[in-house]
Simulated scan of single mutants.
Amino acid sequence: MTTLTQAPETPAARETPARRRRRVDRLPYLLLLPCLAIIGVLLLWPLGQVVAMSFFRLDNVRQLRGDRDWPWVGLGNYAEILGDPFFRTVLRNTVLFAAANVVLTMILGTLVGLLLNRLGRRMATFVASCVMLAWATPALTGTIVWKWLFDDTSGLVTWLFNALPDGLSNALFGRADWTGYGWFNSPLMFFSILTLVVVWHSFPFIAVSVLAGLKSVPSELHEAARVDGAGPWKVFWKITFPLLRPVFGILVVLSTIWDFKVFTQQFVLAGGTQDRPTFMLSIYSYAEAFSPPPKYGLGAAIAVILTLILLVVTGLYVRMVLKQEEDA
């Protein structure tokens, strides 16, 4: 007579279903830990340093190199910035510039996206490749090209205006000779050119994103609307826009963040930090921190205020999205 011996129970066999589920639920977080660690080192640590600097008076580079004897001022830097009338001017410039650029970028990008969706495959690929050249061009390189275009002596724009008939140029603009004209001297003209540069560099991303969203919209809906007699404008507002509302929401938030943080284009076009009437928050923070005499604490405080504004914008968007999901 043989005796059957029971195999020893393994730890995996003794694991309960509830414990197994908990172990599986923790797996995604464990896989994210390396990425979170990298983000913490590259983003959160510098951000924490900037926040800490905003509570001290730092006016010497030696203090940043290792001298930890920083004079504590608490909210003094914030009080000085918020109480400065020039800060309100800078904030107004930033808000108006960002609002105008977001609207123009969204309109132009959406129109180009709709155009790409109507073109044939080969032509759409060619046009999209040409459009993406603007997105692929580094901001510094593209801005230098635009600054050359508006050069007051040899720029293409100056040449084109000089090519106009003198009578027409005098009737429209009040001058016939454009050589030596300072395109960047007046704030209105400067912001107009800066808007042109930023929109040119930003709209390709909007166009490609809108095109990707349009590919997910069932073509039967558009065909049914056209059969019912709806025109292109009505088709867009009644079908396309409601279905792509989340895409447009994300693009608006991203464009707002990018346009609030414009620095490279303004710095290059203005030739530094001398043109204070055209300051926006990013270059204002840089100028306060690094222009002699340096005020690193004030610059850090302005950077924190800019970050808080962008967090508020992002928070409002997230709240809007959650509310739409609840209503749905």
Rank of each mutant, 00 (worst) to 15 (best):
Leu251Tyr: 08
Ala163Cys: 07
Arg57Thr: 04
Pro11Val: 12
Trp178Phe: 12
Asp152Ala: 13
Phe260Gln: 05
Gly180Met: 08
Leu42Val: 15
Phe203Glu: 05
Arg14Val: 10
Gly83Tyr: 01
Ala163His: 13
Gly174Pro: 13
Thr10Gln: 08
Leu4Trp: 10
Phe161Pro: 00
Gly167Thr: 15
Cys35Lys: 00
Thr89Leu: 09
Leu149Gln: 10
Ser192Gly: 15
Leu188Trp: 14
Glu223Met: 06
Leu108Phe: 09
Ala224Asp: 08
Phe203Gln: 05
Gly142Gln: 14
Leu27Trp: 15
Phe203Pro: 06
Gly76Glu: 03
Ala225Asp: 09
Thr307Ala: 13
Lys295Glu: 13
Cys35Glu: 02
Val268Cys: 09
Val304Phe: 04
Lys147Ser: 12
Ile309Phe: 14
Arg19Glu: 15
Thr16Gln: 03
Asn162Cys: 07
Leu244Asp: 00
Thr179Ile: 12
Arg276Asn: 06
Trp178Gly: 06
Thr2Ile: 14
Ser202Met: 11
Leu160Ile: 10
Pro17Asp: 07
Glu15Ala: 14
Leu194Ile: 01
Thr94Lys: 05
Asp275Trp: 09
Leu75Met: 13
Thr307Ser: 13
Leu306Ile: 02
Tyr181Asn: 08
Ala7Trp: 06
Leu42Met: 13
Arg88Thr: 11
Phe161Gln: 07
Pro71Phe: 06
Val312Phe: 10
Ala301Gly: 04
Trp258Pro: 00
Thr3Asn: 04
Gly40Ser: 06
Val50Tyr: 04
Phe205Asp: 07
Gly76Cys: 02
Trp135Met: 08
Thr240Tyr: 03
Gly297Asp: 02
Gly83Cys: 04
Thr137Asn: 09
Ala301Leu: 05
Leu322Tyr: 00
Gly213Ile: 00
Met189Trp: 14
Ser216Asp: 14
Ile206Asn: 13
Arg21Asn: 09
Phe205Gly: 10
Asp177Arg: 12
Leu269Pro: 11
Gly142Trp: 11
Leu221Gly: 03
Val268Pro: 00
Trp200Asp: 07
Gly109Met: 06
Trp148Ser: 10
Cys35Asp: 03
Asn170Gly: 09
Gly182Arg: 15
Val131Cys: 14
Val318Trp: 05
Ala270Gly: 11
Gly83Leu: 03
Asp228Leu: 09
Arg65Gly: 14
Met132Val: 12
Tyr296Asp: 01
Thr94His: 04
Trp148Asp: 08
Gly174Trp: 08
Leu114Pro: 09
Leu251Asn: 11
Leu269Ile: 05
Leu47Trp: 12
Trp72Cys: 03
Pro242Leu: 01
Ala207Gln: 04
Val90Arg: 02
Arg121His: 11
Pro292Arg: 10
Leu47His: 02
Lys238Ile: 06
Val61Ser: 10
Ile38Ser: 05
Glu220Ile: 06
Glu15Pro: 00
Leu114Lys: 03
Pro8Thr: 06
Leu4Cys: 00
Leu108Ala: 15
Val90Cys: 03
Ile257Leu: 12
Tyr286Ile: 01
Asp259Pro: 00
Leu42Asn: 01
Gly155Tyr: 03
Phe56Pro: 02
Ile302Ser: 01
Ser216Glu: 15
Asp177His: 12
Pro292Gln: 11
Asp275Ser: 13
Leu168Lys: 05
Ile309Asp: 01
Thr179Gly: 09
Leu104Tyr: 02
Leu298Ile: 11
Trp146Lys: 05
Gln324Lys: 11
Ser186Thr: 14
Ser192Val: 15
Val90Trp: 03
Ala207Ser: 10
Leu322Glu: 04
His201Thr: 10
